[in-house]
Design a protein around this nucleic acid. Structure first.
Length: 591
RNA sequence: GCGGCGGUCGUCUAGCCUGGACUAGGACGCCGGCCUGCCAAGCCGGAGGUCCCGGGUUCAAAUCCCGGCCGCCGCACCA
């Protein structure tokens, strides 16, 4: 297809391969669907985006948010507890004549109206045969039911029974380690635990290049809060309370409505977002994606309906960004996970994952308390007393109270003597309460966000390609160019500047090959924000020119000031004009 | 998984229908040299191709047929 007709996706795929941003993995063996390599420039871009995410979510909230790193392989138990083994496994059945795949359980439930949840596949196959269930599309014969699990399965160590799963999300690492982090951070609540790492999902049919991969990087945070303290859970809410969020509510979506703008504080007050923390992190998410170059109008949050939500979620918003080829794609999910995960892990592990939160002042509560009068029981029941006392000691206060307040208290079939149980009203000092924290989770797909950044950076100017990345995510930050490549003095001087910039920690290219215009074009194509050119005036007065990728304007400044100018330009958003005196090329400006 | 379309130097592509003169051509890019006083200039030279993979048909396959892999689109799937 001629270059002009190719769509943006195709152009990026082409640049991706040619300049080294990304390409399909295992190409020399024909490739494997759903796996992509990041090339030299892609890695830098991705790293800068991850760093930026850290700045937005972790560093800017470092009093409350910490980062950890946990293994990508977990024992089966963890993913049984999380619900993934159950919910990630679908029984599927294939039509022998048209080849379509169906969820076997849905098919059976739809045709005979009976829930078959949890039945083994052999049973499902039997039911399909017995009831004569046919392909709902073509009426063809259905094959054997088998399971398909989106979890990658492996084995830990040499024993086949020790099943391990590749994590499909990062969250379980944070939940499982929650108690440790909580204690290491001196019992702080709220606390956010962030993680950046790889996950795997064995998608049936991945497509759309970087948008749907079988293995990818997630940037995620579990923000643990006290469910009874909405306001205190989000001490930084005020920072973004005026921020406008574009939201499509589930109700509005059902009515074919459009996303509407809500101020964060309104959306929370009106109950559109069920928790201020959920809303706050959505607002941070909006600012983050905006900072990757996506304008506000090309982004919105879509509330997921009950049937669309994951098994753990009470409310979920997808954060969507418009891309050229596929329309709206999900770059992040914002979920209120409640206490689903921690309580599941409590049940499966038998560990106490509750936290204790002291009251500002201890309070005294009056409550009824049951005292067991062992003397009476012993004296009256003699030999039977032992059995009764054992039973009583294993009972909770509530059970004892119920027993004490019944007409004729009976334990183990033995009637208790009068005065065996005494109920008294006592005052108890309560210093705090125990609860299972609730969790708010913003979760970002890194690779998708990198793709989005690439797409929004793409410009064509005078027939050349410019990747206009926000300066602080540009993979290469500056290029140093001797005006002519065959003049040793210019090259040597340019080398000095290059070394200076590298020494200062910048990622810099040195390019002396080809005409100066070609080299500017090369740098523009990979999105280098600044170009420093060493010319003959440099040899006279030590000044160099600095060029802005986006305006192609140049200023002149002393070479020794170049690192500081670059720092301001890249990280502080300084305008080129403020970094030096205007420079015009010889011969220009006379026309 | 199903259906449609596609896969040729790093990239984009010509050739395929109608098999042979294809030692697979071009453009861009890349490398070296010359030149070049600021926006893909010019000249010279060079490297670079398992024609996606496997099998078949044929005297002969980039080209025709079958299977597979990969990609895109549609369906299904996407906690």
């Amino acid at each position: 297809m001629p270059g002009g007709l190719a769509d943006l996706f195709e152009k990026l795929v082409e640049i991706g391969k040619r300049r080294g941003f990304f390409w399909p993995s295992y190409e020399i063996y024909g490739g494997v669907a759903g796996f992509y390599d990041w090339g030299p420039l892609g890695v830098l871009l991705k790293q800068r985006i991850i760093e930026k995410w850290r700045r937005f979510f972790v560093l800017m909230h470092q009093e409350y948010v910490v980062e950890i790193e946990t293994p990508i392989i977990g024992p089966a138990k963890v993913y049984e507890a999380s619900g993934h083994v159950e919910h990630f496994t679908d029984p599927i059945v294939k039509c022998n004549s048209c080849g379509r795949m169906f969820r076997a359980d849905h098919l059976i439930e739809d045709s005979i109206g009976v829930s078959v949840e949890g039945l083994p596949v052999s049973e499902l196959t039997r039911i399909i045969r017995e009831k004569g269930i046919k392909c709902p599309v073509c009426g063809g014969e259905l094959g054997e039911v088998r399971t398909f699990n989106l979890l990658f399965k492996t084995q830990i160590g040499p024993y086949e029974g020790d099943i391990g799963y590749l994590r499909p999300e990062l969250a379980q690492g944070m939940f499982v380690a929650f108690k440790r982090v909580y204690e290491a951070m001196r019992n702080r609540i709220p606390i956010g635990i962030a993680q950046v790492g790889r996950v795997g999902r064995n998608e049936i049919s991945p497509r759309q290049a970087l948008v749907r991969l079988r293995e990818f990087t997630i940037m995620e945070m579990e923000y643990f809060i006290d469910p009874e303290d909405k306001e205190g859970s989000c001490p930084f809410f005020h920072r973004l309370s005026e921020e406008k969020l574009r939201i499509l509510t589930y109700d509005s979506k059902k009515a074919d409505g459009k996303p509407e703008y809500y101020k964060l504080s309104e959306a929370v007050e009106e109950g559109i977002i069920i928790h201020p923390c959920l809303g706050y992190w959505m607002a941070v998410g909006k600012k983050f994606v905006e900072s990757l170059g996506v304008p506000e109008e090309n982004m919105y949050f879509e509330e997921k309906g009950p049937e669309e939500r994951a098994h753990y979620s009470t409310q979920t918003f997808d954060q969507l960004v418009k891309v050229s080829r596929w329309g709206w794609i999900e770059v992040a999910g914002h979920s209120y996970r409640g206490d689903y995960d921690l309580s599941r892990h409590m049940r499966y592990s038998g560990q106490d994952l509750t936290v204790f939160k002291p009251y500002p002042k201890p309070i005294t509560v009056k409550e009824k308390r049951v005292f067991v009068n062992k003397a009476v029981i012993g004296r009256e029941l003699k030999a039977k007393a032992k059995k009764v006392l054992e039973a009583l000691s294993s009972m909770s206060q509530e059970e004892l109270l119920r027993l004490a307040e019944s007409e004729e208290p009976v334990v183990e079939g033995i009637k208790l003597p009068k005065g065996a149980l005494r109920v008294e009203e006592v005052e108890r000092k309560v210093t705090g309460r125990r609860f299972i924290p609730h969790v708010v989770e913003p979760s970002f797909g890194t690779d998708r966000n990198v793709y989005v950044a690439l797409e929004y950076a793409y410009r064509e100017k005078d027939g050349r390609v410019v990747l206009s990345f926000p300066r602080d995510i540009a993979p290469i930050q500056a290029v140093v160019l001797p005006l002519l490549e065959n003049d040793e003095k210019l090259v040597a001087e340019a080398r000095k500047l290059y070394d200076m910039l590298v020494e200062e920690g910048f990622t810099v290219y040195f390019d002396a090959s080809g005409s100066i215009g070609r080299r500017y074009a090369r740098a523009d194509e990979i999105g280098v924000p600044a170009a420093f050119t060493i010319d003959y005036q440099t040899l006279e007065d030590g000044t160099v020119t600095m060029r802005d990728r986006d305006t192609w304007k140049q200023v002149r400044l002393p070479m020794r000031e170049a690192p500081e100018a670059l720092r301001k330009f890249i990280y502080k958003g300084a305008r080129l004009e403020d970094l030096g005196v205007p420079f015009t090329r010889t011969g220009e400006g006379e026309a």
